[in-house]
Every structure is written in structure tokens, then in C-alpha cells.
Design a protein around this nucleic acid. Structure first.
Length: 452
RNA sequence: UCCGGCGUAGCUCAGCGGCAGAGCGGGUGGCUGUUAACCACUAGGUCGUAGGUUCGAUCCCUACCGCCGGAGCCA
């Protein structure tokens, strides 16, 4: 069997071709019909010409939009404008009909409606393109790290650490609802949760294998209702031994650039579709990002830029406070007009594991901000000095006995090391131009929503 | 969770304190190497849910539910 993609890219006619897919639209003449057949292998469908009387033509009225069909025929140059090749069918087989209740119409639908039929939306042009892109970007992540000698580590999904500082956690239990049993009586003998980050475990492997990365699902039980947050998302977390913050920032920028370059070279047809129907500036922006160096600015300088900007912000700019979304947007969209890495944040607003700088006031943290999305990457150099780490834990109210294995890393052959987390869906939003995280993941999990 | 907006036909929306509307999609017929085809006809509604005001509520008020946008949390 040939895919539609292969057929459309054919360099020569072919006497015998087999295709199977779903009907996008049909136009009937008295003596023949046109079927547009799409099989998901690429954005475009192929035009099938079926003369009345060929085997299977009796079912032509049932080959409506959404029906699945097999076609046997010849690949020939098209007589009509609009396509180079078409299939002259010699026989048609109706595999599965789709009656008039099939919800995907030939016309455009809103993203909100398509979310309500997420089990069918991958059959639309946009979502077919999104999920082909998602697949290619998945491979690009592995290519990027594997080509640099990184080892992929599968960190656990279920964890017993209940305060990793990355957000609220989902509880994992086999106890019945309202059970009075103590955690000791639960499956793991203690409270267990879905992971909010594989970082701490990844650090242990970096301190053995050198350069590692994780790429897997991550869960946050935050009651977040935004276009950039999901309760279940995929995160990429590299962790590198003998690496400082600057090496970490170099890696993060190279990572983003690599992903963008793969998008530009390997997803051309889908990218052109996004650029035409989702975001007209997309291709220009991706080329810009692929070619230009990113900006880097310390938190202190960023605050100064914001104070000097003359902009009226809803929230005041203040040293020592977190940068608000509007501040980050100003930096990346207005001031620098390109991706920006902000680094060296005040220690008070960052978690216990980040490395204290020589000034005693800031930590070696960094956020990579991109236009339109905001924070794509958050990372840091990790505190490798035992006494300093212990003091940080004390200050953050983190109990050492809960993290004895993490502390052990600093007792036995400790090394400077650094890493970051990249939200895979946020990256997809950036490279596709799609504005809502719910539309770059097959079945979005958000507060109050776990259908499908 | 907070602020704002929206829930009317399968979809996108208009409407109005007094008989429920359009475009698209669907169905039927016609026509054509067609391209989101075209032409004609046609079916399709508990106006989100529950209360309240009113002679009368899809319309005004309240609560709830859902969705969208923004904020916070973060990736």
C-alpha cells in the first residue's frame, strides 16, 4: 500500500497503486466522482477520480466526508489545475461509512469546538499538522541530546518526595476514599505522588553518567486556567556534570535553535500551513530565532531596563520580586525583540537546590523567555557545596532526612552541575504558532477536564 | 483561585419584554474535469440549568454549570 504522501511526491506515473484513507470531500458528476482522500501521512489529500460503473461505485453515495475508503487504481498526471497527480480509480471499497452526524464539516471550525471532539480533530488539517510536528519534534529532542553524548534516563513517574518546590502534586494511593488508614498502610508505605519534575533523580544520574536528559510526562495539580498550563505535560530535563550556569545557558539556547532548525527544514509543508492559517509571522520569526544569538541579561539589569523603560505596568517593577508576565513580555517582545535569557535571580524567590552566587544575594538561576510564550525554559546551576546546600534546605524548611540521597551526592565526589526544564508543549506552541497548550497535546488535562 | 466576556439550529453567529432568524453544513433534485464547486428546494430549536420580576422572559435580575480571554502558580 502506498501513502498519500508517497503518491503526491511521485516522480513518475504508476499503473498500479493502492491507497486507503478518509474522505475529506466528494464532488459528483453524472458519469464520475472526485474524492479527496487523506490518510494523515501529509497535509494534503490526493484527488481520486472514480468513473461510474467501476467496482464499488454503487457505494459512492456513502463515501461522504469522514468515511474510510480503499482505492485501487493508476497514478496519472492530473488533467485539472491544483494538483500534479491524481488517481484514476479502478475499484473502490467502502470500509466504514460516516453518516450525516459526522461533526467535521468541510468548512473551518473553531479550536474550541474541535477540542470538544478531540477524538476526531486529528483528522482536520490543523491537528494533523500539529501532531505530525509533535512527532518530529520528539525525535529532534532525542537527536539533539544523543548527538552530544547525552544519556536518556527514565526517571520515576511516581515519587514520594512531597516538596520539590515545583508545584502542587497529585496524590497516588490505593486506599479507598475516606479511608482512615495511615500512609504506612498505603501501597508504598508512605505518601506517594505523581512527579512534578525528574530533576533531582536526573542529578543523581548526571553525577554518574555525566550528561543525561529526561523526556517524559510531568504532573502539576495547580488550579491553573491559562493557555500555557496543563495538569499533564511533557518536560525535557537535561542535567550536566562539571557544568556551570553559562554552560547551561549555552546548552539551552543551542537546544531551542536546534528544534527551530528542524522545524524549518523537516516540517516544511505543515509549517507553511501554520504560517498561512495560524500565524502569518511564524516563518519569519523562526528564521530570525534560528540565525540570531539570543540576548542574555542579569535579573538586576533586567529590572533596571524595566524601570528605565518608561512603560506603565499594571504591577510595579521592584528588585527582589518575581518578574510578572507583562514584564517578561516587555523584555522579549518589545525591548530585545528576540529570545532572552534572564539569569542570577535573588535567592529569596528561587528554590533550595539552586547554587548561591559569590555575592551571597543571588542564585545561579536562569529563565529563557521567548516572544509570545513567555517562559520556555527554567534552569539553574545546582548547589554542590554540602554546607551551603544544608543551609539552603534549613532556610527553605526542607527536611534533610527526606532528601538524604540528594544530600549524599554532595558528600561523595560532588561536582558542579547544572540543568534545566523545557516545557515540550510550550516549545510546540512556539514552533507551530498555536496559541493554546490544549491544542498541541492529544488529549489535554486541565482543571475540571479529563475527557477522552 | 481572582478579574472580564460568552452560552440561541450540527457549526459560526445575528436578534428582541409580545409567532425563533441568517450563512455554512445535512437531505432531495439538477448541472458541471471538479478544487471550501455551482443552482433550486427542504428538514432542523426545551434560546446552558434552576429560581425570581412581569399579563407575558430567549431578552431583565440572582445563583449555579460550562467555555473563552487575562492574572497568579510555573514549564
Amino acid at each position: 500500500m502506498t501513502t498519500v504522501k508517497e503518491a503526491l511526491h511521485s516522480t513518475a506515473a504508476c499503473d498500479s497503486i493502492f491507497l486507503a484513507g478518509w474522505v475529506r470531500t466528494r464532488r459528483d458528476s453524472k458519469a464520475f466522482s472526485f474524492l479527496e482522500l487523506n490518510d494523515g501521512s501529509c497535509l494534503k489529500g490526493i484527488q481520486v477520480v472514480a468513473d461510474a460503473g467501476i467496482p464499488g461505485y454503487d457505494d459512492i453515495t456513502k463515501m461522504t466526508t469522514g468515511a474510510s475508503v480503499r482505492v485501487e487504481g493508476k497514478l496519472i498526471p492530473s488533467q485539472g489545475a491544483g494538483q500534479a497527480w491524481e488517481v484514476q480509480a479502478q475499484s473502490l471499497t467502502l470500509v466504514g461509512s460516516a453518516d450525516e452526524s459526522y461533526p467535521l464539516q468541510k468548512k473551518g471550525h473553531t479550536l474550541e469546538f474541535l477540542r470538544s471532539i478531540a477524538h476526531l480533530r486529528a483528522r482536520s488539517n490543523l491537528f494533523g499538522a500539529v501532531f505530525r510536528t509533535r512527532s518530529r519534534m520528539t525525535m529532534a529532542v532525542h537527536e539533539f541530546f544523543q548527538s552530544r553524548g547525552f544519556v536518556n534516563v527514565h526517571t520515576p513517574i511516581i515519587t514520594a518526595s512531597d516538596c520539590e518546590g515545583a508545584g502542587e502534586m497529585f496524590r497516588v494511593t490505593t486506599l479507598g476514599q475516606g479511608s482512615a488508614a495511615k500512609p504506612e498502610g498505603d501501597f508504598f508505605g508512605k505518601n506517594a505522588y505523581l512527579t512534578v519534575s525528574g530533576q533531582l533523580e536526573a542529578e543523581t544520574f548526571a553525577c554518574a553518567l555525566g550528561k543525561v536528559y529526561t523526556f517524559g510526562p510531568t504532573f502539576r495539580a495547580e488550579n491553573s486556567n491559562t493557555s500555557r498550563h496543563a495538569a499533564e505535560f511533557w518536560m525535557i530535563e537535561p542535567e550536566v556534570a562539571f557544568c556551570d550556569l553559562h554552560g547551561d545557558m549555552d546548552l539551552a539556547e543551542a537546544h531551542v535553535k536546534h528544534m527551530v532548525k528542524v522545524m524549518l527544514t523537516d516540517c516544511v509543508e505543515d509549517l507553511e500551513f501554520f504560517s498561512k492559517f495560524v500565524d502569518k509571522e511564524l516563518i519569519a520569526r523562526l528564521k530570525f530565532v534560528a540565525e540570531r544569538p539570543f540576548q542574555r541579561v542579569t535579573y538586576t539589569d533586567a529590572v533596571e531596563i524595566l524601570l528605565q523603560s518608561g512603560q506603565q505596568f499594571e504591577y510595579p517593577v521592584e528588585y527582589g520580586a518575581n518578574l510578572q508576565s507583562e514584564h517578561e513580555r516587555y523584555l522579549t517582545e518589545k525591548h530585545f525583540q528576540c529570545p532572552v535569557t534572564v539569569f542570577n535571580y535573588p535567592k529569596e524567590i528561587k528554590p533550595f537546590y539552586m547554587r548561591l552566587n559569590e555575592d551571597g544575594k543571588t542564585v545561579a538561576a536562569m529563565d529563557l523567555l521567548i516572544p509570545g510564550i513567555g517562559e520556555l525554559i527554567g534552569g539553574s546551576q545546582r548547589e554542590e557545596r554540602l554546607e551551603v546546600l544544608q543551609a539552603n534546605m534549613e532556610r527553605h524548611g526542607v527536611k534533610e532526612e527526606d532528601y538524604w540521597w540528594y544530600v549524599d551526592l554532595r558528600k561523595y565526589g560532588t561536582v558542579p552541575h547544572a540543568g534545566y526544564g523545557m516545557g515540550f508543549e510550550r516549545l510546540l506552541m512556539f514552533v507551530t504558532g498555536v496559541g493554546n497548550i490544549r491544542d498541541v497535546i492529544p488529549y489535554a488535562r486541565t482543571p475540571g477536564s479529563a475527557e477522552f
